[in-house]
Design a protein around this nucleic acid. Structure first.
Lengths: 230, 230
DNA sequence: AATCGAAGGATTGTTGAACAATCGCTAAAT
DNA sequence: ATTTAGCGATTGTTCAACAATCCTTCGATT
């Protein structure tokens, strides 16, 4: 998620506890507020305001902005400021294009038994959330499911790309989260995909996932429908 | 490639000529030096030195570093400085995992006749370079080829991801570029893939590309072989 | 002699203040 | 009503300073 390593090895070889830089902490804080919906898409982030609120220098806020901008969570308008990114219809399709490419590829490659177990665990997590009627938990479980699929590829780069894409989607999911059945509706799909994966039928699992993503995109596009494109 | 848009629309609706910020210009300059091999992997980039050399503030250099770090062209070691990224064996495999996911997916999706024509153009560009014996031109033609494949997906995000990955690879390609036949060797593959694509046999084209990438990775791993892993 | 520990120097991380450039807005002028 | 000019605010960038941290060197100890 963060661009720099959490644990650093000093020259002497000792492992040092990672104490995130102030800029990274600011970025994390903003990331949190973005995920929580405290900062809505399109909202403006004034440097001086945030600097005061968080008790840091304006320059440090600036560095945090650079990090968030590289993650597309925020958009820089030169000389105008940074704004919380707002995804339009085109962006939704784009994000799903990325997800299709990454997730399907990872699923086709299969994974170790532990990797598969992680996918299964995410499925069960989703079921429990559904039983408890906890939509938010269902949402995170769903993200765990897809994260576990990508993790099968064992690729750090794919993992970070996936994490960023999911963070982007979380940006406007507040709207969709209201739909009570939004996540539960996908539970059978997750189950089917997981079963195919466990049975070693990778191609079938990949096809199921692909169809799953297509439907998910359509649904999200419907829910969205009206918001601004840029 | 750059994180901010090149052309910005002012509130009044007028189109403003994109004058890249100083930080972006510094980042571009460093990117250029990295691509040219003026800065070798592992080399240290001292803030004050670069600030003086380019006649900008240390703070601005810092912002440029943040951008390059987000592109993985440079690695930040907290309190130690930033270093030109050096790819180890694991990184090579990882980069190719990303490429397989993205390129194969884009190829499977097919594209418009114009998209296919762009792929064909890149193939011919590579042939001309081979005839002329220009290895460097052959290398860029090869990158155009793969870039055109990804462009078929019509996804801005996939395009930037691909661009970053290619930039990463260029980082240590200086070593491999020495091999005269390195790129030419792949020309038949490019031709075959392009023909399958033009024939509308997307699955076959995708399989060819996948095999191509596997072989390319093996070859690159061999050439590499000895360099540091971190 | 080898290991350990304590200065020393250098570089990064962060702050604060300053200033020019640019933007959006308001109000005046045509 | 449209355009122009001016104004306030915010960003972009620089500069200077200081604390924190690291690497190295040197010296002390066993």
């Amino acid at each position: 998620m963060a661009s720099t390593d959490p644990a650093v090895r000093t020259a002497a070889g000792r492992l040092r506890v990672a104490v995130p830089s102030v800029a990274e902490r600011v970025a994390s804080e903003l990331r949190l507020q973005l995920a929580e919906g405290a900062l809505l898409p399109g909202a403006r982030l004034t440097e001086s305001t945030i600097a005061e609120d968080l008790g840091v220098s304006r320059n440090t806020v600036r560095e945090a902005f650079a990090e968030l901008a590289s993650e597309r969570l925020v958009v820089r308008h030169p000389n105008r400021g940074v704004f919380v990114a707002s995804l339009g219809a085109g962006d939704i399709h784009d994000v799903y294009t990325v997800r299709r490419a990454i997730e399907v590829s990872a699923l086709r490659g299969g994974g170790s038994p532990e990797d598969v177990a992680a996918v299964r665990a995410a499925v069960e997590e989703g079921k429990r959330a559904a039983v408890a009627g906890d939509d938010e938990a269902g949402g995170t479980a769903n993200q765990h499911f897809h994260g576990a699929i990508v993790a099968m590829a064992g690729s750090p780069r794919l993992n970070t790309i996936m994490a960023q894409v999911l963070a982007e989607m979380r940006l406007f999911f507040h709207k969709a989260t209201a739909d009570a059945y939004f996540y539960q509706h996908y539970l059978p799909d997750n189950e089917a995909i997981c079963e195919a994966l466990e049975a070693g039928e990778l191609d079938r699992a990949a096809d199921l996932l692909s169809a799953y993503l297509d439907r998910s995109e359509d649904k999200l596009a419907d829910v969205h429908g009206e918001s601004g494109t840029e």
